[in-house]
């Protein structure tokens, strides 16, 4: 503990938890006074490559699974209305359980690792996507559905060609919120052994250059996802721009 950073104090409070994990002792790393060390960053930026890819995978897999399940549940609840209150409550409970707790609730079942992290993150996204999809479907004006019926559309056609299209803004908005939050929360996957950007972040958690790099990549990834989905929403709803 020669290069004790500010967080090293936790070592005593938290019963020997923070340890010096990184083996390299670069001069800049030892200098805790420096906020950001450009030389170190330039030389070591490549070590964030793999964690960034892992992070992307965590997010993409969990949001894709979350979306598939939530979307299916929403369609089901749309047809069978009595399912709506229990599904809202169930997804709400799952959403309320903190992801970091969920990682470890799965411990006896799936153990540690990436799958556990993906399941927990997917569960977290369920309610956001489910609720937004239901809101979108509920907001479709009844006269429009009447008109579709009048044109001879079947219920299935009305759902896929009218209701879901008009609900697209809310659905994509839900996807956006879910994705952006998941990018941020996925940094905690390291506690479940799930890798991602939390890995390098946590490995030298006293080194501010490392914190800024790992945290910054995660932050920018979240913002990028947000912007991309914003673009997707605009692309999928051309009628909104005409208005």
């Amino acid at each position: 503990m020669t290069s004790a950073g500010p967080l090293a104090a936790v070592g005593e409070v938290g019963k020997g938890f923070i340890q010096e994990r990184s083996s390299d002792t670069l001069p800049c790393q030892a200098d805790s006074g420096k906020l950001f060390c450009f030389d170190w960053a330039r030389e070591h930026i490549d070590r964030y490559g793999t964690p960034t890819v892992e992070h992307l995978e965590l997010v993409l897999f969990s949001v894709a699974i979350g979306f598939a399940v939530a979307f299916a549940l929403a369609l089901l609840a749309h047809r069978r209305r009595w399912l709506q209150p229990p599904l809202l409550a169930a997804t709400g409970v799952l959403f309320t359980i903190p992801s970091i707790a969920f990682f470890f609730l799965l411990l006896p079942i799936t153990g540690r690792g990436r799958d556990t992290a993906i399941i927990a993150l997917a569960v977290y996204t369920l309610q956001i996507i489910y609720r937004n999809t239901m809101t979108g479907l509920a907001n479709v004006p009844a006269p429009i559905k009447e008109a579709a019926r009048g044109m001879g559309m079947t219920e299935r056609q009305i759902l896929w060609r009218v209701e879901l299209r008009l609900a697209t803004p809310e659905i994509v908005a839900g996807l956006q919120i879910a994705t952006v939050s998941t990018v941020a929360i996925a940094t905690l996957a390291v506690f479940a052994g799930g890798g991602g950007l939390g890995q390098p972040l946590y490995a030298s958690i006293n080194f501010s250059t490392n914190i800024i790099l790992a945290g910054g990549i995660a932050f920018l990834m979240a913002i990028a996802f947000g912007l991309v989905l914003f673009g997707v929403q605009r692309l999928l709803t051309p009628w909104r721009r005409a208005a």
Partner: peptide, 22 residues
């Protein structure tokens, strides 16, 4: 609202630890 969701808390806490301590 959107930027707030994107903040990785683990990084924020660690960063603030180097700035103002734990």
């Amino acid at each position: 609202g959107n930027a707030g969701r994107a903040v990785p808390e683990l990084a924020l806490i660690a960063f603030m630890a180097t700035a103002i301590g734990v």
